[in-house]
Simulated assay, not measured.
Amino acid sequence: MRMSQQVQAVVAKARNQPVSVETIVVPDPGPGEAVVAVRTCGVCHTDLHYREGGINDEFPFLLGHEAAGVVEAVGEGVDDVAPGDFVILNWRAVCGRCRACLKGKPWYCFNTHNAAQPMTLVDGTPLSPALGIGAFAEKTLVHSGQCTKVDPDASPAAVGLLGCGVMAGLGAAINTGGVGRGDSVAVIGCGGVGDAAIAGARLAGATTVIGVDVDDRKLEWARKFGATHTVNSREADAVETIRELTGGFGADVVIDAVGRPETWKQAFYARDLAGTVVLVGVPTPDMRVEMPLIDLFSRGGSLKSSWYGDCLPSRDFPYLVDLYRQGRLDLDAFVTETIPLDGVEGAFERMHHGDVLRSVVVL
Rank of each mutant, 00 (worst) to 15 (best):
Y269F: 07
L341V: 11
C190Y: 00
V159F: 01
R299W: 07
G189M: 03
A236T: 09
R217I: 01
G132P: 02
R260Y: 11
R51Q: 06
V38K: 00
D252T: 15
D79M: 07
L102K: 07
I198M: 04
V19P: 00
L357M: 12
P106L: 13
V7T: 11
T338A: 13
M1P: 06
T112S: 09
G346M: 06
F225T: 01
G160F: 09
L89N: 03
W107G: 06
K218S: 08
E220C: 05
W307K: 01
T23C: 08
C109G: 03
F61H: 12
V335I: 11
K218Y: 07
C98I: 13
F59Y: 15
L279D: 02
V344R: 02
L89W: 01
E244W: 13
L357V: 11
E22Q: 12
R39D: 13
R39H: 12
D195L: 08
P83I: 14
K218I: 10
Q266D: 13
T23I: 14
M287F: 09
G84E: 03
N114L: 11
N232G: 05
R39S: 06
H229N: 14
L127R: 13
R15G: 03
V254C: 06
Q326V: 01
P340K: 14
T23F: 06
Y50N: 04
G192V: 01
G327I: 12
D183W: 00
I55M: 08
V70G: 12
V166M: 04
A12N: 10
G42N: 02
E345K: 02
V35E: 03
A347C: 10
S155E: 12
G42S: 04
G354C: 09
D57K: 10
L357H: 04
V212H: 02
N175L: 10
I88L: 05
S359Y: 00
P126S: 09
R99F: 14
A12P: 07
V87H: 10
R202C: 15
L170V: 06
P106E: 15
I88N: 02
W221G: 00
P118I: 05
D213W: 00
V360K: 01
K304R: 10
M291C: 10
S302L: 14
D237T: 02
G169R: 00
A267W: 00
G200P: 02
V335A: 01
K218R: 12
T176I: 04
A197N: 08
A257T: 03
K265F: 11
